[in-house]
């Protein structure tokens, strides 16, 4: 347990005085690690909203859909070679998403604080996502990140600080994971910065991924939640089993050309060149360029929307 220092006592007094004059202003000026008293504190239970990116998030992305991703050739080729059967391997069946991606899943979200009893300082926030039971700790006490030879985890090592009304989380020590769930990877050398923005009963989570291995520019995307005090944090039992009888050590992949890459651009009338992604495809002006590109013939039988 941390001791109470004179500085912290003065800080508490200052916070109380400012709080009496206007909670929101006090919160914006609260020093890092202090409980936010103006309602921006993200603690509580939250339910996901899927208005944004439904196709990618819930049915799952199409094979070969790299649109809007600032990826390099290496990431593109990882995606091309990826075979969904990889997820069938027992060692991958219960593999949880990284803390930069887990917000995207069909998960309720629970956020809570650890508060020092004596000083009422927020030591850490914790997040729990019902999908895979992923649990992240966000240290608010200013501790340093571990050395680079320490263990990497799915959730990584996270520290947080307040920037105005936003809780800004910096995460390192991540294991490899997804950028998009069709084989586009995010490396274990990436850093993520997450902005938690509470506005009324809504919580917006903006994730920015910096990956020196597979991204040419930082990649940002947002995910929304709505406050739901009745949200159930259901268990996520997962026990790997042998789903397919295959030789030990076999790793499914497209060793040669992936025959399915044209299906996505053909089905949706998107130029195959655009489907390959890249930083350029993130920006609105790319739509003008797309108009000059050739399309593949649409398949005779149109697959109904999912």
């Amino acid at each position: 347990m941390r001791g109470t220092t004179p500085g912290k006592v003065l800080g508490i007094l200052a916070l109380l005085i400012l709080g009496a004059g206007g909670g929101r202003r006090a919160a914006a000026q609260a020093p890092p690690g202090w409980a936010n008293s103006s309602g921006e504190d993200p603690s509580g239970t939250w339910a996901p909203r899927f208005d944004e990116d439904w196709e990618e998030r819930i049915p799952g992305p199409e094979i070969g859909d790299y649109l809007g991703l600032p990826i390099n050739d290496a990431a593109r080729l990882r995606g091309d070679a990826w075979d969904a059967a990889l997820v069938e391997l027992p060692e991958n069946q219960c593999r949880m998403h990284g803390s930069d991606y887990g917000w995207r899943g069909p998960s309720n979200l629970h956020i809570w604080q650890d508060v020092d009893r004596a000083t009422q300082t927020v030591i850490a926030y914790h997040t729990h996502l019902s999908a895979y039971g992923a649990e992240q700790t966000i240290w608010m006490d200013g501790r340093p990140h571990p050395p680079d030879y320490a263990l990497h985890t799915w959730q990584g090592f996270s520290t947080g600080e307040w920037e105005g009304d936003q809780l800004v989380i910096t995460t390192t020590h991540l294991k490899e994971n997804w950028i998009r769930r069709n084989g586009i990877p995010r490396s274990d050398l990436a850093t993520a910065r997450v902005h938690l923005m509470k506005h009324g009963d809504y919580l917006t989570v903006a994730v920015i991924v910096y990956d020196p291995i597979y991204l040419t520019e930082p990649f940002i995307r947002t995910t929304d939640f709505v406050y739901n005090p009745q949200a159930q944090m259901a268990p996520w039992p997962c026990e790997p089993v042998d789903e397919v009888d295959r030789p030990a050590g076999q790793v499914p992949s497209h060793v040669g050309a992936n025959p399915f890459l044209d299906e996505f651009p053909a089905r949706y009338g998107i130029p195959p060149e655009a489907a390959r992604g890249g930083a350029e495809t993130m920006y609105p002006e790319y739509q003008l360029k797309m108009k000059q590109m050739k399309l593949l013939p649409r398949p005779a039988k149109v697959v109904p929307n999912r």
Partner: peptide, 13 residues
């Protein structure tokens, strides 16, 4: 593993 869920990390170092 926690509560029947294989976390596929940790355990053996």
């Amino acid at each position: 593993g926690i509560a029947g869920a294989d976390l596929q990390e940790g355990g053996t170092m």
